[in-house]
Design a protein around this nucleic acid. Sequence first.
DNA 1: CATTGTGAACGGGTTCACAGCA
DNA 2: TGCTGTGAACCCGTTCACAATG
Lengths: 206, 206
Amino acid sequence: MVDKKIPDIIIGRLPKYLRSLQRMDREGRLVTSSKEMGERLGISAAQIRKDLSQFGEFGKQGKGYSVPFLIKQLSEILHVNHDWEVAVVGAGDIGSAVAHYKGFANRGFKIVLLFDNDPQRIGTRIGELTIQDYSLLIETIQEKGIKIAIVAVPVTSAQEVTDNLVKAGVKAILSYAPVIINHPQDVYVQYIDPSIHLQRMTYYLD
Amino acid sequence: MVDKKIPDIIIGRLPKYLRSLQRMDREGRLVTSSKEMGERLGISAAQIRKDLSQFGEFGKQGKGYSVPFLIKQLSEILHVNHDWEVAVVGAGDIGSAVAHYKGFANRGFKIVLLFDNDPQRIGTRIGELTIQDYSLLIETIQEKGIKIAIVAVPVTSAQEVTDNLVKAGVKAILSYAPVIINHPQDVYVQYIDPSIHLQRMTYYLD
DNA sequence: CATTGTGAACGGGTTCACAGCA
DNA sequence: TGCTGTGAACCCGTTCACAATG
């Protein structure tokens, strides 16, 4: 294995492999194969083998892959073998749902901060988090050294919030605002926009 | 323009083009170019031109594209020139946030039904919707002829809910449950899983 | 002997570059 | 002149097919 540049499209599949493996693990499966993983994921077995082979020889010929071992390897590759602290900006409906979300457990993330600029909300609690004043965003995030943030604010504020997150040293942003955000090249941004997914499907509906 | 099979990867970009154009429209822009769209979207101008040319000749040489005209064309192509009625299953944190979400307006979708199986929730209201009994899911959806549903239930129920939606005649499903769902070929499924996005970024973080 | 790892072949999506046209 | 539409070239990801091997 050479540590050449891995195409981003492969990186994008690894979390799906990991999620599938963790599910197998919960089902008590100890070993799997590229064929089985492919069937579960709707991906060809050859592609899974080739993707994994970019990072090492994780399988055993004739046997397949050890589920716990592959989980360990993928977790390390994706840097989710330890939890990342995450800040959430916006405590409206989406921010609250994100703050309550149980799905980050065992996936490498823990929400530790929740910000809002509404005086009515600041100081109130959502789950185990107390809503912080947005005006303290930069200093608080800097202080804690947080590198990942989730943006759950209206379209109109998304750019300003992003700018402040970047100033605070955040390097990865997941935004629920349906707008493309300008950001430095060394900051990674991903988007969640349900309408995009729905429109992608309505093309095929009559 | 021949109505040959359009690659799905192109279909996936059209909603992004449409969202960007609607934003320009709100900004009062009347005309744009493939260059400008590309810069906003982080996509090459050539690709945008080639994508659009699959469906017709929408531009004017030397001038560019009319923003309102292109919005109209893309809306028709994606079948979002009229609103689709959407059912939401699950009225927990995610389902509630989806039900409250304003971002479907002008994107072609209107949530008209919200189901849950918790007797405590059934009959209560979320926004303008009254939570319906999940046991009435199939007949209600059939009756209304709803073709699109959003699944916001725990992983453990996602498959069963999907099976019932399919029975009810739903053809497009957007699922927030972090698990791959089995479904007939003539039913389209898309997923939203924030952990997948985050893990895709942590690969690049130290 | 089932299944991996992988070079080679393949296929298709992206970019290039320019003719065409307002 | 400026920008679209598009055939051709290019590039890169996927699939193929089989040697390797526990």
